[in-house]
């Protein structure tokens, strides 16, 4: 249990996907205009990563390994992720307008979000069992959501700040990201 907890903590804070593994930078810069969209995107990412990781884990151990076609891993994983996103979007569209408003509009951005494919591949390369896969595929996107939310709070003030014209927008946002990475590197070694 302690091992799982420390693994989760490491994934959320120390090896944060955005700040130390450089994944999901596009939504980190693109959907952080306000904290409401940051939370919507974060929850959608958690849901998709959790679902897609379980399916890819099952696919790998029940289909790819018995048939000895592990080289199909990348191609089948991206297809699983893309299909899962399409089905999720379809169900949300059909059954809940309010859910669509808060989460559904971010789903088209998730197919090409590298965090999803990374977590699915990482679960296999690290040799995680089912429990570890579940913990990993919840805690990694949780770290993404945490950083996205923190960044959106900073961003709201950053946009009204007086910056040089060529630094406006993404460049100054990346400087803020560097400072956040510096702050988060202080957590290294707590687990």
């Amino acid at each position: 249990m302690t091992e799982l907890l420390s693994m989760a903590l490491a994934a959320v804070i120390i090896n944060n996907v955005v700040l130390s593994q450089f994944l999901g930078i596009c939504p980190f810069l693109g959907v952080s205009k306000n904290s409401k969209s940051a939370i919507g995107m974060g929850v959608a990412v958690i849901f998709v990563i959790f679902g897609a990781s379980l399916i890819t884990y099952a696919l790998y151990h029940l289909v790819l390994v018995p048939f000895k076609i592990e080289y199909m891993q990348l191609i089948s994983f991206i297809l699983v992720i893309a299909t899962f996103v399409q089905f999720t979007e379809m169900f949300i569209k059909k059954y809940s307008a309010s859910l669509y408003k808060s989460l559904g509009i971010y789903l088209p951005l998730i197919t090409t979000n590298c965090v999803v494919l990374f977590v699915a591949q990482d679960n296999i390369t690290q040799g995680y069992d089912l429990i570890e896969t579940i913990v990993n595929s919840i805690s990694v996107p949780l770290g993404f959501m945490l950083v996205l939310y923190l960044f959106s709070c900073l961003r709201e003030r950053l946009d009204s700040a007086d910056t040089l014209p060529s630094w406006k927008g993404n460049p100054v946002a990346l400087v803020v990201a560097a400072l956040m990475a510096l702050a988060f590197s202080g957590f290294a070694g707590i687990v």
Binding site: I25, Q86, F87, A97, I105
Partner: peptide
């Protein structure tokens, strides 16, 4: 499966009042 899921998803209309909503991602 993916192609058909994509096709059916794009045929499913967006819920009422959400037709012009989008994520406004400027990454």
């Amino acid at each position: 499966i993916y192609c058909s899921a994509y096709y059916f998803n794009h045929k499913t209309p967006k819920p009422k009042g959400c037709e012009n909503l989008k994520a406004n991602c400027d990454g």
